[in-house]
């Protein structure tokens, strides 16, 4: 799969926010590729820049507050970072769609859900009102909403949170996009409903060969859905790897720290509960561009070098990169 040309290639993306205290470097030189049919997870904690990255790709950032200050967002070779707004309106929905954490705020409360799906189809696919209405019911069925015909006539408030997220997915896939960006799509849902939505997304991906950029903070969800993982910290990509490799041998101390801090189901089986690993301190401010490793103040492995220079991304094995001068030892015995 890694031999095919990337569908989306984000190159050295720089996104900045204007604030009273100066510019905030929310995304600072992030690069990654997504190939057709591949699911890439963008993970990190609050404020790491993962959502700003996805909004930059969609060019949905508020124009007065934020700007893409550098880098390229190549969709099949076309640079979206410099595309006109008119062009972006075609790209959104047709080529790339997005679903969000809270479906209620993305749905129009005074239109039936059937109408909202049909609207997208009329606008992007040029279908007649009647054709669009029929396809809407079809789409509701394809996201496994029972009694799709009856549901199409209902309003968003009449649906549960899980059903609303299914409707959002139906709208997102209406025009068969090549890439679906899912920003914390299951975070607000209960765990049994989350399982249903993850199964649905996996099933859609298999049926359509759609690529997916999945943004989440949940390392359990990542393990279930992703092929490849990009870990962000304080606006920068600090590690990326194929999912199995990342979980088996995290090389950046931040990634390793996150795994150690995570309570894992089944921990009581051995009788003794281990103390969770703490990452001391909290995330730094992003006021100035990094002049050293931004994780160094919290890192158990940091040295003077880490406090003086920004560590470059270095290869740690096939498809595995980490930005660290002193990566975690490879516990499986292999060398990078």
């Amino acid at each position: 799969m890694t031999d095919t040309a990337p569908l989306l290639s984000v190159r050295n993306l720089q996104t900045r926010f204007r604030t009273d205290g100066g510019e905030v470097h929310a995304v600072d030189g992030v690069s990654f590729d997504i190939r057709p049919g591949q699911t890439v997870a963008l993970v990190g904690e609050s404020g790491c820049g993962k959502s700003v990255t996805s909004l930059s790709i969609m060019r949905l950032l508020p124009a007065r507050a934020a700007r893409i200050a550098g880098g390229e967002i190549l969709l099949n070779g076309e640079n979206l970072a410099t595309a006109t707004e008119q062009r972006m309106r075609r790209v959104r929905g047709n080529d790339i769609s997005m679903i969000f954490q809270e479906p209620m705020t993305s749905l129009n409360p005074v239109l039936t859900i059937g109408r909202q799906i049909a609207e997208t189809l009329e606008l992007h696919e040029g279908l007649t009102r009647r054709e669009a209405g029929e396809k809407a019911i079809h789409l509701l069925a394809s996201v496994q909403i029972p009694e799709p015909k009856r549901r199409a006539a209902e309003y968003p408030h009449e649906l549960s949170g899980g059903m609303r997220q299914r409707v959002m997915i139906a709208i997102a896939i209406a025009c068969s996009p090549k890439l679906l960006i899912a920003d914390e799509p299951t975070t607000a849902l209960d765990v049994t409903i989350q399982a249903q939505i993850l199964d649905l997304l996996a099933d859609l991906k298999e049926r359509t060969n759609m690529a997916m950029l999945f943004i989440t903070h949940d390392l359990g969800v990542v393990a279930e859905i992703a092929d490849h993982v990009v870990v962000m910290y304080a606006g920068r990509k600090i590690e990326e790897a194929p999912v199995a490799d990342l979980y088996a041998r995290p090389r950046h101390p931040y990634t390793a720290g996150l795994f150690g801090a995570l309570p894992v189901l089944g921990s009581s089986a051995g009788g003794q509960t281990d103390r969770l690993n703490e990452i001391p301190g909290s995330v730094p401010s992003l006021r100035s561009p990094a002049s050293h490793c931004t994780f160094a103040p919290r890192c158990p492995r940091s040295t003077d070098l880490c406090r003086a220079e920004v560590p470059p991304l270095a290869g740690q094995g096939a498809g595995h990169l980490a930005a660290c001068f002193h990566p975690e030892p490879d516990q499986k015995g292999g060398t990078a």
Binding site: M163, T192, Q194, Q196, G220, A223, Y247, L265
Partner: peptide, 23 residues
């Protein structure tokens, strides 16, 4: 069913979910 629905941080783990219908 609740325990089986929790996503585990173990890539490639065979899923043995007990699906619950509806809400």
């Amino acid at each position: 069913a609740l325990l089986s629905a929790v996503p585990r941080p173990e890539p490639g783990r065979a899923r043995t979910r007990i699906p619950l219908k509806g809400d």
